[in-house]
């Protein structure tokens, strides 16, 4: 860790101004990822502007949905009554991620800004275009069994690690940001994270100095049929091999609205629009779910060690949609775990 300055922000405009003026300054939320990256010598911010005491931690009803504060903790968000009732998919996804201790510290804005867990990115002695553009991608021909199968480029095959963001992608969330000079804008979630392309060093479309103040969740009729499924190597506290946020609205025996987003497959939460398109208006049968999943994954391009992810993702999509149809429950993220509810 290199020496850095630390300040506790009390006023958003002043904090944004200071960070905007210094390209090496960073906002600090819970620090559960950024501080690790500093200890690993991957990131070297000149100063940290701690925003956790700004008044952006409110979770409240808005005209057409719910607003969750950027500095509200993941734990508070997941367990908030309004979230549990209206957006159980988000609640399930958050609770499938990290550990209770980390969720207590981590903020919603910080969750969206976390970096990939690709170990080539974390090892400062390895090539990594995301950490050090131009050095190459260590994982492309290296150990890549946990890496992307969709949307990757020769420059980067990393995946985006958040569970929360997979649900937000499915829920059509909108990210509210504030920049210097009191400029405010909103970013539709699909446009927030980006694919690596030629510039894997850029994770998302936030401009330097812009602060996430809240995340808006538009109203929907998906709450009753939502399910977050996470497949991982152990029962808890592991990043997803594959995760699926699935939600449905049916009309009689027809699918009226369907949302499918995948985690663990790409540089951003992957909205499975081909599968959604395929399903809309059809019956919610296992056969249709399978056909939709394979239509989506037809475009998958596995790497040397992750061919297994393609089949796994297809099965996970089917299982998640089935779970949603059965009215996903809290604890559903443990669906891959046989250690609950028995013995």
């Amino acid at each position: 860790m290199r020496p850095f300055k630390y300040a506790n922000a009390s006023n958003p405009a002043a904090a944004i101004k200071i960070v905007t003026a210094d390209p090496a300054a960073r906002f600090l939320g819970g620090g559960t990822n950024l501080v690790d990256l500093m200890k690993e010598d991957v990131m070297h911010p000149s100063q940290l502007m701690d925003v956790t005491r700004l008044k952006f931690s409110v979770i409240e009803k808005k005209a057409n949905g719910l607003s969750i504060g950027g500095t509200a903790s993941n734990a508070v968000t997941a367990n908030h009554d309004l979230v549990r009732e209206n957006y159980p998919l988000l609640s399930m996804a958050i609770l499938a991620g990290a550990s209770a201790q980390i969720r207590n510290m981590a903020t919603n804005a910080g969750n969206l800004n976390q970096r990939t867990r690709c170990t080539y990115f974390y090892d400062a002695n390895m090539p990594c275009n995301k950490r050090e553009p131009g050095t190459g991608c260590g994982a492309l021909h290296g150990v890549n069994k946990n890496h992307a199968i969709l949307g990757w480029s020769e420059k980067c095959v990393a995946t985006y690690p958040s569970d929360m963001a997979v649900a937000l992608a499915a829920l059509n969330a909108v990210v509210q940001v504030e920049g210097s000079g009191n400029t405010k804008r909103n970013i539709p979630f699909a446009d927030f994270h980006r694919l690596p392309g030629e510039h894997p060093e850029i994770d998302n479309t936030l401009k330097h100095g812009e602060l996430i103040t809240s995340i808006d969740l538009p109203e929907n009729r998906l709450a009753e049929k939502s399910y977050y499924l996470k497949v991982r190597e152990r029962s808890s506290y592991a990043f997803a091999l594959i995760s699926v946020a699935a939600a449905l609205e049916t009309n009689g025996n027809r699918i009226k609205d369907v949302r499918i987003a995948l985690g663990g497959v790409a540089h951003k939460p992957w909205r499975a629009r081909i599968a959604e398109q395929w399903l809309r208006g059809k019956e919610p049968t296992q056969a249709n779910f399978r056909a939709a999943a394979s239509a989506e994954l037809k475009h998958a391009k596995p790497l040397g060690q992750n061919k297994y992810k393609v089949g796994l993702a297809a099965k996970a999509i089917v299982r998640a949609l089935e779970g949603a149809m059965q009215g996903g429950t809290y604890g559903a993220m443990e669906a891959d775990s046989t250690t609950t509810n028995q013995n």
Binding site: T119, G142, R234, S235
Partner: peptide, 28 residues
């Protein structure tokens, strides 16, 4: 622990990568 076959370094570097059982993996 997995090693990169080009450079020989461990790619599994921390307890986030090197998985050991969590409570939920431990049965009676």
């Amino acid at each position: 622990t997995e090693y990169d076959k080009r450079w020989g370094n461990p790619v599994t570097r921390t307890l986030a990568d090197y998985h050991v059982p969590v409570h939920l993996d431990v049965p009676p």
